[in-house]
Computed example of a mutant assay.
Amino acid sequence: MLIRVEIPVDAPGIDSLLRGAFGRGAEADLVHRLREDGLLTLGVVATDEEGGVVGYAAFSPVWIGGEDCQWVGLAPLAVEDAFRRQGIAGQLICEGLDMLNEFGYRAVVVLGDPGYYSRFGFIPAARSRLHCRWPGAEAAFQLFPLADDALEGVSGQVEYADPFNQLAL
């Protein structure tokens, strides 16, 4: 198993993985649009021995009250069924967080299971007076500060890139 930054040749494998993992095309279309619009900050893949994509994590920019605070959102995250429960998703998350930290990003947000993401240090965004546009998502909307002062002077609505507005949650 190799965890690395995605390269152009991975795109078809990522597309196929996302369509299979989510049982629909919305997430694959989302990643395609983010890539096309130059809004894919980081893509991390897990590949098998033959180089096939078996896991993927995408990170794209988010804004707080319309301001670029050097934050990103983690979505989508997927692992092929045959490779689940092996820690691959966790490896993708950790590798992504490490890379983003090295690149100077200040925080990461995610909309997901608090029980799962808290294992990696994500905390409820509501504690910092931050929320997303999707009603009823308060418990699932979480953040991971990469910089010590990432939360200073920020509050309000975290806005994802426009392609997320077309995604049905």
Rank of each mutant, 00 (worst) to 15 (best):
R84H: 10
G20T: 07
D148V: 14
E152C: 10
Q70H: 15
V154R: 04
A78W: 04
C94W: 04
H131L: 14
A139P: 10
W71K: 00
L169W: 15
L74W: 09
Y116D: 02
V62G: 04
V154G: 09
D29K: 05
W134N: 04
F122G: 08
D15C: 13
D15N: 08
V31N: 02
R19G: 02
G20D: 12
F120M: 06
L92F: 08
R84C: 06
I3H: 01
V72C: 11
V154M: 09
I88W: 08
A168W: 14
P8E: 01
G65Y: 09
L169R: 10
D37H: 10
A139K: 13
E95M: 13
R129L: 13
M99G: 08
R119M: 11
R33E: 14
L39A: 07
I3P: 00
I3M: 04
A150T: 10
R19M: 03
D162N: 06
C132M: 11
A161E: 04
G25T: 12
R85P: 02
P124I: 12
R106L: 04
P76T: 07
G52S: 12
V154I: 15
A125W: 09
P163A: 00
A21V: 05
C132K: 01
A46R: 03
P124F: 11
I7P: 07
G55V: 02
G153Q: 02
G55Q: 06
S60T: 13
F103A: 14
L169H: 14
F122N: 05
E95H: 15
V109A: 06
V79G: 01
V44W: 08
L2D: 11
F144H: 12
G87C: 07
V9K: 11
G73L: 09
T47N: 10
D149I: 13
L34N: 02
G38A: 14
C132S: 12
A107K: 00
S16D: 10
L167M: 09
F164R: 03
R133N: 07
W134P: 01
G153P: 01
V158G: 05
V31Q: 01
I14E: 01
A125M: 08
E27S: 03
V31W: 06
P12M: 03
E27R: 01
Y116I: 03
S155G: 11
F141C: 04
Y116W: 13
V44A: 13
D15R: 12
H32C: 11
R19I: 06
G112V: 09
G51P: 06
D48S: 07
A21Y: 04
E102Y: 08
E152F: 14
A58W: 12
F122I: 11
F59L: 09
V158R: 09
E138S: 09
E36I: 05
Y56T: 00
L30R: 02
L18D: 00
V44Q: 05
D149C: 11
I3T: 03
A21I: 03
Q91N: 10
P163G: 01
L2C: 14
D148H: 14
V31H: 06
D113Y: 07
G153L: 02
S128H: 15
V79I: 06
Y56D: 00
Q157Y: 12
R85I: 05
A150D: 03
A26T: 05
P76Y: 11
G55C: 05
A28Q: 00
R85M: 12
F120T: 04
Q142C: 13
